[in-house]
Amino acid sequence: MNYPNFPDDCNSLLSKYLTPEVFDALKNKKTSNGFTLGQAINSGVKNLDSGIGVYAGDQESYSVFAALFDPIIEEYHGFRKEDAHKSNLNPEDLNAPNPDPEGLYIISTRIRVGRNVDHMPLGPGISKEQRDQVESSVVEGLYTLEGELAGKYYPLLGMSKEVQDSLIKDHFLFKEGDRFLDAAGLNRNWPEGRGIYHNNDKTFLVWVNEEDQLRIISMQKGGDIKEVFTRLVSAIKSIETKVSFAYSDHLGYITSCPTNLGTAMRASVHIALPNLAKDMEAFKKITDAYHLQIRGIHGEHSQSEDGVYDISNRRRLGITEVEAVQDMYDGVVALIEAEKALSEVRH
Rank of each mutant, 00 (worst) to 15 (best):
K175M: 12
S166P: 00
I311Q: 01
T287R: 01
E210P: 10
L13V: 13
V345Q: 11
Q133N: 14
T255P: 02
L292H: 01
I73Q: 06
S248F: 01
K340P: 00
H77G: 10
L14N: 00
D306W: 10
S160W: 01
E211C: 12
N90E: 09
D310F: 08
P258V: 09
D306P: 01
T36G: 03
S256R: 00
I297V: 08
F174D: 02
L232G: 12
K27R: 15
D330W: 04
I72R: 05
L156R: 01
S137W: 03
E135A: 13
K46E: 14
L142F: 07
G34L: 07
L68K: 10
I196A: 01
H347L: 14
A289T: 07
Q164D: 09
T287G: 01
I107W: 05
N275V: 03
T263S: 15
A338L: 06
D165M: 07
I236Y: 14
D49P: 02
L48A: 09
L214H: 13
P124M: 07
L142C: 05
G147K: 11
L335Y: 00
G177W: 04
P20M: 05
F229R: 11
A341D: 06
G193M: 06
I254A: 05
I41C: 04
P124Q: 06
T320H: 03
H119C: 03
A150P: 04
P71Y: 11
E227T: 13
V64D: 00
F35T: 07
L122M: 06
D9W: 05
E281D: 11
V308D: 02
H171L: 06
I107H: 08
L13K: 14
I217W: 09
N199P: 03
G331H: 06
P155M: 03
K169F: 13
